[in-house]
C-alpha cells in the first residue's frame, strides 16, 4: 500500500512536470508576447520592447527560463518584472503581470472561498443525488421512479448558468428569500454570514450536479439489487433495510466514488459560473480574470494547480477503492 502510494505520487509528479512544460511552451511560444503586457500601447517603441524582453529574461534560451521558472517550486525567487523587482516567496509560480504579486499566493488566498463552495455543493448534491437515486432504484418502474428520472433529465436540460442566474435574480434580488451571496470567512465574519452567503450557491450546485448522481446511483443501485449476493442476503432473512444499506448500497457506492472524486477536483479548481454569478471571489474567477487580461503567469499557475487537484483526486479515489472493496489490492 505504501509503495503503491509512493509510486502513484511519483507518477503524479511526472504528470505535473509534463503539464508545466506544456504550460510553459504556451507561455513562451504562444501568440501573446509577454513583454507587450508591460508595454503601454501608446508609447511602445521596438527599442522599449527589446529592453523589456531583456529585463524579463525572455531573450534567454527556453530551457534556462524553464529551469528558473521551476526553481520557484523549491525556493523563493526574486523576480525582475517590468523595471521593479518583486520578492516571490516559496512556492513561486511567477509574478502576475497585472497585480505584480506572486500568483501562487494570489490564488491561494482565494482557495478558502472556492473550497467552501465546492465542499458545501458536494455535500448537497451527494445527499440529493444519492437519496433520490436509491429511492428510484428501489421503486424501479413505478411512477416515483419515472418522476425522479424525468425531473433529473429536465433539470439537466437547463443550462447551469441560466438556472443559477435565474435563481439569483428571483430568490436574492427579487424575492429576497436568500441574503446577498458572497464569501465571508467563517472565522472572521462568523458562521451565520458564511452560511448565508453561500446557501444559494450550494443549493444550485446541489441541484445541478445531483441530477447525474441521481441517475448514476440509480443505475448502480439497480445493478447491485440484482446481484446474487443481495438475493443471498434476502434469503438469509435479513430485514429489507439491512439488505439495502449493508449489502446493496455498499456495492453501488463504488462507481459513484469514481465520478465524485473527479467532480470534486474540478469543483476545487473553481466553479466559474457559480463564482461569477454569485459574486464569490474564488479561484475560478481569478482564472477567468487572468484569461481576459492575458496574465500569462496567472493562467499557468491556475492550470498547474488545477492539474494537481485532479492528480491528487485520482490517487485518493484509488485508495478509497481499496478501502471499500477488499478485492482491490494496491500493490
Amino acid at each position: 500500500m505504501f509503495g503503491y502510494i509512493v509510486r502513484r505520487l511519483i507518477a503524479g509528479v511526472l504528470v505535473l512536470i509534463a503539464v508545466s512544460m506544456m504550460v510553459f511552451a504556451i507561455f513562451f511560444y504562444g501568440p501573446n508576447d509577454p513583454a507587450l503586457a508591460y508595454c503601454p500601447e501608446s508609447r511602445c517603441t521596438p527599442q522599449r520592447l527589446d529592453n523589456l524582453r531583456h529585463n524579463l529574461g525572455l531573450d534567454r534560451p527556453a530551457p534556462q527560463q524553464y529551469v528558473e521558472y521551476m526553481s520557484g517550486l523549491v525556493k523563493s525567487r526574486h523576480i525582475e518584472s517590468g523595471g521593479i523587482s518583486i520578492d516571490c516567496n516559496w512556492p513561486c509560480l511567477g509574478v502576475s503581470f497585472k497585480y505584480r504579486v506572486s500568483v501562487f499566493h494570489y490564488l491561494w488566498d482565494r482557495f478558502p472561498a472556492t473550497f467552501s463552495v465546492a465542499a458545501g455543493g458536494a455535500i448537497c448534491f451527494l445527499i440529493i443525488g444519492l437519496f433520490s437515486g436509491i429511492f428510484a432504484a428501489r421503486r424501479r418502474g413505478t411512477m416515483a421512479d419515472k418522476a425522479i428520472v424525468s425531473t433529473s433529465l429536465f433539470i439537466n436540460a437547463i443550462p447551469y448558468y441560466l438556472l443559477a442566474l435565474l435563481a439569483y435574480l428571483y430568490l436574492v434580488q427579487g424575492l429576497g428569500l436568500f441574503p446577498e451571496t458572497g464569501y465571508h470567512s467563517p472565522f472572521k465574519d462568523g458562521p451565520f454570514k458564511f452560511v448565508g452567503g453561500l446557501a444559494l450557491p450550494w443549493l444550485m450546485l446541489g441541484i445541478a450536479y445531483s441530477t447525474q448522481y441521481a441517475r448514476f446511483s440509480r443505475g448502480a443501485m439497480v445493478d447491485a439489487l440484482n446481484e446474487d449476493y443481495v438475493r443471498t442476503a434476502r434469503a438469509k432473512g435479513l430485514m429489507e433495510r439491512v439488505v439495502v444499506r449493508r449489502h446493496a448500497l455498499r456495492a453501488a457506492i463504488v462507481p459513484v466514488v469514481t465520478i465524485f472524486g473527479l467532480d470534486f477536483a474540478y469543483l476545487l479548481a473553481g466553479t466559474l459560473f457559480t463564482e461569477k454569478i454569485f459574486g464569490i471571489q474564488g479561484m475560478g474567477l481569478a482564472g477567468l480574470d487572468a484569461v481576459q487580461r492575458t496574465d500569462l503567469p496567472m493562467i499557468s499557475a491556475y492550470t498547474l494547480i488545477s492539474a494537481a487537484f485532479i492528480v491528487v483526486a485520482n490517487i485518493v479515489v484509488d485508495i478509497l477503492y481499496s478501502v471499500i472493496d477488499p478485492r482491490v489490492r494496491l500493490a
Partner: peptide, 8 residues
C-alpha cells in the same frame, strides 16, 4: 507476478 513495494 509482480511484487508490491516501491519498485515492482
Amino acid at each position: 507476478v509482480k511484487s508490491s513495494g516501491l519498485i515492482r
